[in-house]
Design a protein around this nucleic acid. Structure first.
Lengths: 207, 207
DNA sequence: TATGTCAGTGAACGCGTGTTCACGCAATTC
DNA sequence: GAATTGCGTGAACACGCGTTCACTGACATA
């Protein structure tokens, strides 16, 4: 009843997930990841894989879930730090870019599967991104009193810009990353100003 | 000397390219495209492939080039729309979205290889996108008298938003596409307003 | 007309793959 | 202590793959 068996199973499961992560790189994506490779890296027999996942697809979806979770936790954390003052935009974008730089494999996975060849994967990633966008929109409504619709539009635009820039970060050198960061911050501010102008515009049209 | 031989070769080459295009779909991307599949679809022996391309990679880069070509045609088409007058933003974004809807395979290829596992591919796609951005920035400088730097920032943001929305179009139904189109138009206008506000801001800061 | 070139071919190769199966053996249950 | 459960295993399978090779036959050249 000690559950030593269940613990062993979980350990092996983690080993499989970690092995898959380790194999992901710029040259070798999830698509070209084989069951045998993963089990080899994890140090177990190929057949044992099926004790933990039905498919490579199931493993992949687990990876996507883990990636999305990590990203969201990080950003929530960064938003809390903002409450203390300082530039919201700068802090958030910087945090995001750091995440990308430090979790290359995960972000690359999300990015690739966003436009990958499995519908289920695409939906899973899209869900994560939408989750992301919704949190930002909520923030804009609550803290900056934007009307719901405009907040959604603005949040969607910002997320699109930031994720796209994040993708470019993957291939960029240190200096290029810095430049990309500054550009992205400037662009998010442009969007914010545009949303502000749009709000003012809508107000004066109403009266 | 009639070159009937060269003509035949070119014809087969085109058949290979076309065969590869045909095999590309939402479920079956370039990465999971095999030499044998392509030659089967093209109706030639697997070994004949090597008379035309050294690698699958070489074929792939050819496909990307074709995609880039199509994209540039799109730009020209877009410019013609603008010349007719009317809303520049609406016309341009609509044209782009129509392109995506009508050239699903090509756009999906560009999208996937933008974050794919071959550096050469990524660079090739990036070059095409940069061309796109530069073209838009030039327009903003010439027609709307934006300073170079702000125009570049704005163009980059717009391209990121539009390409990202284009990616979502691939999986969207007709109604969703319409909604996505309107959202994107609104977002591009927000960016334009934000850039305008930024320009004004910079001016008043100078004086 | 004789000679050379070269796109297309079919057989054959070795390789890595996903998946099946029956089995061993330790943890668990009764 | 006996019976059961279930994770991990190694052998075996059929399959599709990229690539090689020597060869054919229509076109090109001179």
């Amino acid at each position: 009843m000690a559950g030593i068996r269940a613990a062993q199973k979980e350990k092996t499961r983690r080993a499989l997930i970690q092995a898959a992560m380790n194999q992901l790189s710029a040259e070798h994506g999830y698509a070209s990841l084989s069951l045998r490779e993963v089990t080899r890296e994890a140090g177990i027999a190929p057949t044992s894989f099926y004790r933990h996942f039905q498919n490579m697809e199931e493993l992949g979806l687990t990876l996507v879930d883990e990636g999305g979770l990590a990203l969201r936790q990080l950003l929530r954390q960064s938003r809390q730090q903002i409450a203390k003052g300082g530039s919201i935009v700068r802090a958030s974008v910087t945090t995001f870019m750091e995440f990308v730089a430090n979790n290359t494999a995960i972000f690359r996975l999300l990015l690739q599967e966003k436009s990958g060849n499995s519908k289920e994967f695409r939906l899973a990633v899209q869900r994560e991104v939408e989750h992301f966008t919704a949190e930002l929109a909520d923030y804009l409504v609550a803290e900056q009193q934007f009307p719901r619709e405009l907040a959604a539009l603005q949040a969607d635009a910002i997320v699109r810009i930031v994720f796209s820039a994040g993708a470019d970060v993957l291939d960029a050198s240190g200096a290029e990353r810095q430049e990309l960061l500054e550009m992205t911050i400037a662009q998010v501010r442009i969007v914010a100003r545009g949303a502000e102008a749009t709000r003012t515009l809508a107000r004066s049209a109403k009266s």
